[in-house]
Design a protein around this nucleic acid. Structure first.
Lengths: 149, 149
DNA sequence: TATTGCACTTGCAATATGCAAGTAGATCAT
DNA sequence: ATGATCTACTTGCATATTGCAAGTGCAATA
C-alpha cells in the first residue's frame, strides 16, 4: 500500500478512515458497491475509471480483510463470486453522501443534479435509507438466487 | 500522484472527492488544518504519522492548487509561511466528522471518546459550528499578527 | 470435447514514496 | 556585522507501488 510504512492506522479516527479508504481505488470500489449496485469482479473492473485487474484484486481482498466486503461464491453458479458490502461499509453512507454533497458544490463539471444535495439537506436520514433499501434489494435478489439481477 | 494516469477526476461526485483527498496524506493534512489548528510546514511535518518532507511539500502545493489551502507568507516574519484552510476545505467538515463518527464505531483502538459521536448525533450543526469557530479563532490570531498563536 | 466466461496471477517497465542530506533566505545572538 | 539558527523547502537515490499486457485455472456452455 502506498506509504504504509510502519504506521499504526488505528487510534485517531481520521487516520483510521484514511487507512481504510484513503485510497482512490478503495473509494471507488465502495462507491460502486454502495451506490451503483456492483457486486462482481468484472462489474468493478468495468467501471469507467479503468482500474487495473491486479489492483482490483488487491483492493477487493483488502476490503474483505478489514470487513467492508463479504466475498461469497454463488452456490448456484460456482464460477461467480460476489462481494457484498457489509454493515461496516453501509455505515459509511452518511460520510460518502456528505462528500458527494461537497463535490457537487465544488466540481464545476459535476454530473450530479442539484436536486441530489437538496434532497439530502432536507431529509438526510431518508436519503440514506433510500440507498440502504437499494442495497437490500440487490443483495436479496442475488442471495435469493435471482442470478439475472 | 499514485494512480493518476489520464483519469478525469471530475464529473462523478465520488470520483471528484477521491481525486482530491482520496490520498492518505492529503487526508491527514486536512485533518491537521481543520481539526488540530496546524498552519505551518513544520507543524504538519511534526504530525505523529511522520510524513516525509518531500511528500509534504508536494501535497501542500497540490492542496493549494485545488483551492483547499491558501498559502500566505507572514508579513511580519517573512520566514514563516502559513497554510490556511479555505471555505472549500471547511465545507469538508461535515464529511470529515461523519467519517470520524464511523471510525469511532469500528476502530477497536479508537482514542476518540464516545461523547464525540453522541454530541454530533444530537447536534450535528452545532458540532460543525464549533469546529469552524475554532478555525476562525486560530486564523484571526495569526492574521491579526499574534505570531505566538 | 472445445470454447467461452469469470476471477484472478504473473512479469516487467514506469512511477511514486521514504529517507537522508543539502540549499536558500530570514532572523537571532553576540 | 557576522556567524549560528530557523523555516521552508529541494535533491538524489534505493525501494515500493502501479499500470499494462499476457497468462492461468476452474466452471459453465455449446
Amino acid at each position: 500500500m502506498t506509504g504504509t510504512r510502519k504506521i499504526t492506522w488505528d487510534g485517531c479516527p481520521t487516520r483510521y478512515a484514511a487507512g481504510i479508504f484513503g485510497d482512490r481505488w478503495c473509494f471507488l470500489i465502495l462507491r460502486d458497491a454502495l451506490l451503483h449496485a456492483k457486486r462482481t469482479y468484472s462489474e468493478f473492473l468495468a467501471s469507467p475509471e479503468g482500474i487495473s485487474t491486479n489492483i482490483l484484486a488487491d483492493r477487493l481482498s483488502r476490503l474483505e480483510a478489514v470487513g467492508m466486503l463479504e466475498r461469497i461464491i454463488d452456490p448456484r453458479k460456482a464460477s461467480r463470486v460476489c462481494y457484498f458490502p457489509t454493515r461496516m461499509a453501509r455505515d459509511l453512507l452518511p460520510a460518502l453522501i456528505a462528500m458527494m454533497v461537497w463535490s457537487t458544490k465544488y466540481d464545476k463539471h459535476t454530473e450530479a443534479p442539484t436536486s441530489f444535495a437538496k434532497a439530502y439537506q432536507s431529509d438526510p436520514l431518508g436519503t440514506i435509507a433510500w440507498y440502504e433499501a437499494e442495497i437490500d434489494r440487490v443483495d436479496a435478489a442475488i442471495r435469493g438466487g435471482d442470478i439475472n439481477t
